Simulated scan of single mutants.
Amino acid sequence: MRVFNSDNKFCAFLRGVNVKGTNMKMAEVCSVFVGAGMKDVSSVLASGNILFSSEKKVEEIKEILEKSMSEHFSYEAFLFVKSQKEIETIFAENPFETDPRYHVYSFVGVDGIEKILLLEFEKSGKASGEEAQLIGRNFYWRVPKGNTLDSEFGNILGRKNLKNSFTSRNINTFEKVLKKI
């Protein structure tokens, strides 16, 4: 019998799910993960956050899941796999205080994307109170509510040359993932 501990509990953060015509039912996504050999599969919210256990290495998991998702849903899947410990770190190191006037996002993606995001943020125009910080390898962005998609940095995030390199989640999503993982 396999024993799963926090070292083999993961969340896959899917990019571009249920936006711009890529619609997926999370139950169907979970079934694809099970078919790809993942265990203890469940979803958090409808934005493509899939919890699972596996004894495989992250690089292998990513490759298997992207291939399975691409084949099943007939689209080019991009996802980023984080361990339970990495998710705990993302949530714990959030540098911004809770403030009902702001959204706080953290980003997961390819190695080094956090530095690119910080450079792009520093070059962009900012709304009052809009801030970003790089803590370790994690990039955090605080933006006034209602300005996320209209902000200059928000528009940069949609660039084609960046789209396959990261995905973002509200810090509250990371908290919900941790409660369920």
Score class of each variant (00 low, 15 high):
Y102H: 06
E71Y: 03
K56A: 12
L65G: 07
E63P: 00
K67F: 08
E88N: 11
L79Y: 12
K82Y: 08
Y75N: 10
E88W: 06
V104Y: 03
G109A: 07
S68F: 07
F52R: 03
K56Q: 11
F73D: 05
E60N: 13
G109Y: 04
K56N: 11
E60R: 12
V104F: 03
E88R: 11
G48P: 08
I50R: 01
D99G: 06
I61G: 01
K56C: 04
D111Q: 08
E55N: 14
E97R: 12
E76T: 14
F91M: 07
L79M: 15
D111E: 12
K57H: 11
K85H: 15
E59S: 13
K57F: 06
E76L: 12
M69R: 09
K57Q: 13
M69H: 05
S106I: 00
S47Q: 05
I50F: 01
E55S: 12
P95I: 08
F52E: 04
S53L: 07
D99T: 03
L65A: 10
E55L: 12
N94Y: 10
Q84K: 05
E86D: 15
S74W: 04
F73L: 09
E55V: 08
E59D: 15
I90N: 00
E66A: 09
K85L: 08
R101N: 05
V110T: 13
A92Y: 04
N49Q: 04
E63R: 13
V104D: 01
L51M: 08
E55M: 10
F52I: 04
K62C: 09
E76C: 08
H103L: 06
Y105V: 03
E86A: 03
G48S: 07
E93F: 07
K57D: 12
K57N: 10
Q84R: 02
K62S: 14
F52K: 03
M69W: 05
E60W: 05
V108C: 08
